[in-house]
Amino acid sequence: MVVAVLLIVDFVRRHPYWSAVLVLVAVAGVVVLLSARAKQRARQRAEQAERDRVVAVTDTMTGAEFEQWFGRLLEASGFRHVHVRGGSGDRGADVTALAPDGRRVVVQCKRQSLTNRVGSAAIQRFAGTCREVHGGELCAIVTNGLFTAGDGVRLARQLGIVLIDRGALETWAWAGTPPPRMLGR
């Protein structure tokens, strides 16, 4: 290593102009490489954002992938401090965030097959943890499927839990604008 440094110093002393040219070429190469990498990342983000606009992509996802997808949707819609927490021990808070108006958002994500529906039991479990355990000011259950009609939907309405089904989620993903009830309207 010391020998290499001495050889470089000697070359720079004997050939200062060539040394400057080599440094400029090296710097230009690094700039071109970093620029190409940045463009590639931007292109990948744009492609991911385009794929995320179609709710049908969620049909083949795992639950964890659906949570990540929804986290990206929140971020793209102006929500801040989005944290995907899903997994065992999450106590019903798969995603947390701050709404554009600053309220704490707690979301339970339910990725379902098109034939399964989110029922009353899931809504009741979430109702028991959203505000008391997680401090949610805006609580929501999001599914790529549908909710069963009946007591669970009435309970959610009564407790102020926002239910976002496939139709609302599809509109949100395509337009990039959350449903008014996700903004507290």
Rank of each mutant, 00 (worst) to 15 (best):
M61K: 06
L98D: 11
G150W: 10
R91W: 05
D165W: 04
G167T: 11
R14Q: 15
R157W: 06
S77F: 09
L6T: 08
V153N: 00
E75V: 06
V153F: 01
E137Q: 15
C130F: 06
F11S: 03
I161M: 06
E50H: 10
A56G: 07
H83K: 15
T148N: 13
Q112G: 02
P100I: 04
V31S: 04
G87I: 06
T171E: 14
I123C: 07
I164G: 01
D151S: 15
E132W: 04
C139W: 01
G71I: 04
F79N: 01
R181A: 13
A168M: 11
V142Y: 01
I8Y: 09
A175D: 13
Q44C: 01
R45G: 00
V27N: 01
Q68W: 08
R185G: 12
G87K: 05
R91Q: 11
G135S: 03
R181C: 08
G89T: 10
G119H: 11
Q158V: 00
G89M: 06
G29Y: 10
E50L: 14
A93R: 07
V54A: 10
D52I: 09
A99P: 03
A93E: 07
V118D: 01
I8R: 13
V30E: 14
R157K: 13
R43P: 00
A122Y: 04
L7I: 09
T60W: 02
A97I: 02
I164K: 01
R80N: 04
L22S: 08
H81F: 05
V105C: 02
E132D: 12
G136L: 03
G29E: 06
T143G: 09
T115N: 10
L7K: 15
L169Q: 02
Q44R: 15
G92S: 05
E67K: 02
A76Y: 05
L34T: 09
G145W: 05
T115R: 14
R37H: 07
T129I: 10
V30L: 13
L163P: 03
D90Q: 02
D94T: 02
A38T: 09
V5R: 14
Q48L: 15
V95I: 15
R131C: 06
R45V: 12
L74W: 00
L6V: 08
P16V: 00
F70W: 04
R72I: 05
T171W: 08
L159R: 15
E50K: 11
V162D: 04
T62V: 07
A56I: 03
P180V: 07
R131L: 07
R157M: 01
R125E: 15
R157I: 00
R125H: 14
V23Q: 00
A122E: 15
H134R: 03
I141H: 06
V32T: 08
G29Q: 09
R181K: 12
R103M: 03
A36F: 05
A168E: 13
L146F: 11
H15Y: 14
C109G: 08
I8N: 08
D165Q: 10
E132R: 12
R181L: 12
R85W: 03
A173S: 11
W174K: 13
A175F: 02
L74D: 00
V133E: 11
G135L: 05
R37W: 07
R51D: 10
Q68R: 14
P100C: 07
A99H: 01
A99L: 04
R80Y: 00
V25H: 05
L159V: 07
G63A: 10
G160Q: 06
L34V: 10
